[in-house]
Nucleic acid binder design. Structure first.
Length: 424
DNA sequence: TCTGGGGTCCTAGGACCC
DNA sequence: TCTGGGGTCCTAGGACCC
């Protein structure tokens, strides 16, 4: 082979990936959607982010803006749904709990994918078929499983299983025929930009990629792409992370349902995003060291004046106090706001999160005065118990002209008592 | 009219220091 | 006319992922 790499015979990784996940979740609760073309739209009913096989067959591309495919959908009787993240999150954890019965060493990689360690299993393909059947039976969600000695090979095998429609498949790093059948774009870690540059040097498929001198790969995509190359050749560079490392930043941003002109409205939106982001941080027991706010006009409207900006600040002490975070977010917003633009999107990013146990001595100093934190905790408690109607901060406003569209959302069957499925 | 949201990692280059 | 070099730290931007 001449590559110098050896396949590792010691480990076996499986990637379990839910098929058309959001669509599959919707179908569990509405079996009438089976065999029909269905798509799920992103926030603000913007783009198609999940498509059933029937919808793919009609020619709806991934990520297509809805306004561009609306006619196509209407002509073909496509069922169009807004996204329902409460439902998908809940279904996701159900799938994971079934997977964990088979492989206790598992990494939840995304809402619809998990890596499983099947090292030492005697009949991995048979087990994979059993896992697949069990997940379908207990959750209603169809999955595909790819097997390989590294994460990148497992990913590739999963792609193959989806391409061939077999449900489960395995790839060995020496399998020339199979690796040649995977285009360079199919390789995990090779996106649009890198694939163009790789094709230019004659790398067309996964087999080529694994065999090009690593110096050329490094020149094109740095150490990250070099790792991908080694992984594809069977050398493990990406470990299974059973415990998710603590998040470093968290963000809340939204496009507006309607363009926003006024500073006051923008402040209201930014305050809401800041509070949502702060809630995530508090629920993880973290503190915020800094924050960034950004605003932008609609970049697709070439006929309109454009403005985009972002500002960052470092807090004097890490905090999880929503009042301080909102005050600072508004300050940043006012410092860069320019009147006369139609703003389309804004966001708040909380930076350099640290564990709240690091705060230690500061607890009883001025910022953490206990009466104030009791008050904050009480408001947050009421908000989490009774929803936005229970309690909200003054800056959040009540008009919410800017809030996003979500016109075709299905009920939250599994997470909201008012919307639970009724069986007659 | 209408074009998502939330992350990570890496690198180049500027600021600053000795 | 001549105008260092090497280190660190930080940030912005680019690339990727789902």
């Amino acid at each position: 082979m001449g590559s110098g790499y050896q396949c590792s015979p010691f480990s076996l990784i499986a990637l379990a990936d839910c098929n058309n996940f959001y669509v599959s979740c919707e179908r569990v609760f509405r079996p009438s959607l089976d065999k029909r073309p269905v798509i799920v739209l992103s926030n603000n009913d913007g783009c198609a982010v999940a498509r059933s096989n029937e919808a793919k067959a009609i020619g709806i591309p991934m990520g297509a803006p809805y306004h561009q495919i609306r006619n196509l959908c209407e002509r073909n009787g496509v069922v169009v749904l807004s996204s329902n993240y409460e439902l998908y999150g809940d279904m996701s954890s159900r799938v994971v709990s079934v997977l964990a019965r088979f492989a206790p060493e598992l990494e939840v990689y995304s809402i619809d994918e998990s890596f499983l360690d099947l090292t030492g299993v005697t009949n991995p393909l048979d087990i994979s078929i059993r896992i697949r059947d069990q997940v379908k039976k207990w959750t209603g969600i169809p999955i595909s499983i790819g097997l390989g000695s590294t994460k990148t090979l497992a990913k590739a095998a999963n792609r193959l299983a989806k391409k061939k429609g077999t449900g489960c498949s395995m790839i060995h790093c020496g399998d020339e025929k199979i690796l040649r059948s995977l285009t360079i774009e199919d390789v995990w870690g090779v996106g649009r930009r890198l694939s163009v540059r790789l094709r230019r040097i004659g790398v067309l498929n996964a087999w080529d990629f694994a065999r090009v001198p690593s110096a050329s790969i490094r020149a094109i995509g740095g150490v990250t792409l070099e790792r991908t190359q080694r992984e594809l050749a069977g050398v493990s560079c990406l470990e299974l992370e059973e415990v998710a490392p603590p998040r470093k930043n968290t963000c809340c941003s939204r496009s507006f349902g309607k363009p926003v002109i006024d500073l006051e409205e923008l402040e209201e939106a930014v305050a809401n995003y800041a509070i949502r982001a702060t809630r995530k941080v508090r629920s993880e027991g973290s503190l915020v060291s800094g924050l960034q706010v950004f605003i932008m006009t609609n970049r697709f409207r070439e006929d309109q004046p454009q403005y985009a900006n972002s500002r960052t600040l470092t807090l004097d002490e890490p905090t999880d106090d929503p009042i301080r975070i909102v005050q600072n977010a508004k300050r940043l917003l006012r410092s860069m706001f320019r009147p006369g633009y139609a703003y389309k999107k804004a966001g708040v990013i909380l930076l350099d999160l640290v564990s709240s146990s690091f705060r230690q001595g500061l607890l009883f100093e001025e910022h953490g005065s206990s009466r104030r934190s009791e008050f904050v905790n009480a408001v947050e408690e009421a908000a989490s118990r009774y929803g936005a109607g229970g309690a909200f901060w003054g800056g959040q406003g009540i008009g919410k002209q800017w809030r996003m569209r979500r016109e075709m959302r299905t009920p939250r069957y599994t997470t909201d008592w008012n919307e639970i499925l009724e069986v007659e």
